[in-house]
């Protein structure tokens, strides 16, 4: 029996545009399980990224609740959400969003220093390990502007996991990358998941979606499809793609 790590109950998200209400999420209900590599897919404008931001507490919900660790994230204060962001959650953005005047190493270590449970030396040691793991150890002192997209995104992933978050959120992490870098980043995420990291990722890329152990399909602000998959094995990539494609086609993707 999988343990629920995050649970959304009748979540609504709307915003006003030109005097009219635009509804993005219309009663979203979903449970995210520990250890899963969950991917959210859907057509453009279906509410994928909004779902991710609401579930991570980055964005507020207009209605409903998002329960994490017994607490409703939609009702938490900004201060408590801040603590959650560095201690329990990690976030990887499509555009990387590394701080431009910090080196790769510093970008990783800054959220690490926010964690009061770890000493500075422990944080620095972990950062060194992550740099090594991500294969960017030799460019650790480079600025983001001096690195390729793939290198930046690997740094962003390292930053997101420096504090060993319970859940890693990723919003189209390969959206701005070329094929080679995409493959490298997906490999890293897959490996992290194999080592126990729970991941919730938004993507429109079939190849990226195939890395998941669970795919959720969103349409009109609601989950209308839920596919469980076995743990990813690159040997089964082709058949996996066929399976996922067929499923998506059935949902008129």
């Amino acid at each position: 029996m999988k343990k629920t790590i995050l649970s959304a109950k009748e979540v609504f998200k709307s915003f006003a545009h030109n005097g009219k209400q635009v509804h993005i999420l219309t009663g979203m209900n979903v449970d995210i399980y520990e250890g899963d590599f969950t991917v959210i897919m859907g057509a453009s404008g279906s509410g994928k990224s909004t779902t991710l931001y609401v579930l991570s507490g980055m964005d507020g919900a207009t209605g409903g609740s998002v329960i994490y660790n017994g607490e409703d994230l939609t009702k938490l204060s900004e201060k408590k959400l801040s603590v959650l962001r560095y201690s329990d959650f990690g976030f990887v953005f499509q555009q990387m969003h590394l701080v431009s005047n910090l080196s790769l190493y510093e970008n990783i270590i800054v959220p690490g220093y926010l964690n009061k449970k770890r000493s500075a030396s422990e944080t620095e040691k972990r950062a060194d390990e992550l740099l090594e793991k991500m294969g960017i150890s030799d460019i650790r002192d480079h600025l983001p502007s001096q690195c390729s997209g793939g290198e930046q995104q690997r740094c962003a992933i390292a930053r997101a996991v420096i504090n060993e978050p319970k859940l890693l959120f990723a919003d189209e992490p390969t959206g701005a990358l070329n094929r080679k870098n995409t493959s490298e980043v997906l490999d890293l995420l897959t490996e992290l998941n194999r080592n126990g990291q729970s991941i919730l990722m938004v993507t429109h890329d079939l190849k990226a979606a195939c890395r998941a152990s669970r795919i959720l399909y969103i349409e009109d602000g609601r989950i209308i499809g839920d596919l469980d998959l076995a743990m990813y094995d690159e040997k089964d990539e082709k058949s996996r793609e066929t399976q996922v494609n067929a499923w998506l086609t059935s949902l008129e993707w």
């Binding site: 201060k79 959650l84 976030f91 701080v99």
Partner: peptide, 15 residues
Amino acid sequence: RTDIGIFKALGMSAG
């Protein structure tokens, strides 16, 4: 602005 948003997303409080 973006850097501030990043720091906030990483867990730094507004205060």
